[in-house]
Amino acid sequence: MELFEVVRAVYNHPSFDIVSLDQEVPQRNSFMLGMEFIFSTTDGVLGIKEAAAGLGERDFYPSIFLPITYADCIATCLKGTAVWVPVESIYPSSVPSPFFRDMYSKFIIENSEHAAFLFDTYVKYNIESVIEDCILYSLWYFYAWLRKNTGCPYNKKTLMYIRDNHLYMQGRYLIAYMTPTALVSAFFVPAWITPRLIPRKFIFNHPEYFKLVPKSELFISCMDSLGLQPRLELV
């Protein structure tokens, strides 16, 4: 596996093993890791159009799906150390892509041996907390990317609030689901947080970037994704 490939987990009954960087991926029983962001609103979700998301996959995203790569995990582990730029200092102007891993990509490539060692000795054995952190920092970074593309106000206080109140951790607004190919962690940005990140007025003034998808529409058009079927506990 390469650093910028998606992390895979293999089902070895009765549990999943994370595939190391130097391992081959078996044909069967292998799942990719992914994360999904759903920006909830009081009556549905806030969808993001390609002009704002810039992911190059489709015209409209009712939710944002990002695969978790080895580089994502490494970048997450090394956040905020003396070597790395603390994540609090992410400014929209410094964001080159929607992916958090790109912030540290140069360093990761230059230190690939160290990265592989870190993955095998730390990430594999703390994968749950690494995924949680990965979600927090990727959301943080993606938000900066949105700000860069759309010019919406950048509310760092709310990002800190999500972190300090552990909203991104399991059992709060983070749920897990599986597809035949992926193990997905879906983070529901709560309905009272979404307008703090992207103000309602800004959403209504910029239909070229955002579209509110009411529940009634979600039920019928976007229900293939389990992430978009909110658990009642989260509503």
Binding site: S15, I18, R28, I127, E128, I175, P180
Partner: peptide, 27 residues
């Protein structure tokens, strides 16, 4: 997880089994 990767799995099964919390099975 084995069933989910069966090529001929029923579509309702994919939906329902997908709700399984895999966090508890990470090693």
């Amino acid at each position: 997880p084995d069933l989910l990767q069966e090529p001929n799995i029923d579509a309702l099964d994919i939906r329902v089994l997908g709700r399984t919390n895999w966090w508890n099975c990470l090693r």
